Simulated assay, not measured.
Amino acid sequence: MASTTSGDILPSGGRIFLTVPDVFFIPEFVFGGLVWILVASTRVVPDNPLGWVMFVSVFCFVFTTLWFFIFLCGANQSSVWPILDTVYHFVAVVFYLSAAVDLAYVTIVLSSLAVTAEGLKIYRLDIAAVVMSYVATLLYFLHAIFSAIRWKRS
């Protein structure tokens, strides 16, 4: 029976670029940032659902950045970090899934405005944002699943 310590479970420093759940940090940055940029580059109409999408994308981008630097600096060596990692990523999945569904619904409802050149441009940006938000949801989900597996091993 092999014994594991907290240092063996959670990587720190450059090792985060080599472990399965933590390798998702960079794609989460990229696709979450793209959602943020694509939604911000259009008119935020209607305010309420797209405001939620902006909140989710900014919140997850900032907290994933913070999480990344905590892991990079090695401040994640306490025994509570595996469960915190799992909980954060599951919360991010729920947030991003709700934002992606809201964004897809708004895009479908506003598709009738795609008759003008400006409307078509916004419609295409919204479609790209929907795709990126579902990809970000998938990445956060994979990270959450692998983090849960890592937590159960610890």
Rank of each mutant, 00 (worst) to 15 (best):
W36K: 07
T86G: 10
S133M: 10
D85L: 00
L72V: 02
F29L: 09
V91E: 09
G14P: 06
S12H: 14
I149Q: 11
H143E: 14
R15Y: 05
I83M: 12
V130Y: 04
L125Q: 12
V130T: 07
S79K: 12
I122P: 03
K152A: 14
L138A: 14
V35R: 00
N76H: 02
F71Y: 15
I149W: 13
I127Y: 09
Q77F: 09
G32N: 10
G74H: 03
T116E: 05
F95R: 03
I145V: 15
P27L: 05
P27M: 09
S78K: 05
F17D: 04
A117V: 13
F69W: 08
I16M: 13
P11R: 09
F25L: 04
A99W: 09
N48T: 10
G33N: 07
T116L: 09
L120V: 15
S41Q: 10
F146N: 08
L18K: 11
V35W: 00
I145M: 11
A92W: 02
A117W: 11
L139R: 03
F68E: 07
S98I: 11
F95E: 09
D102L: 14
Y88K: 12
G14R: 13
G32Y: 01
F141P: 06
F63Y: 12
E28F: 11
D126C: 06
F90I: 05
V30D: 03
L113K: 11
G33H: 05
Y96T: 14
A128N: 04
I108E: 15
A104K: 00
V94G: 02
Y140D: 06
I127D: 07
W81M: 10
E28T: 15
T64G: 07
C60Q: 06
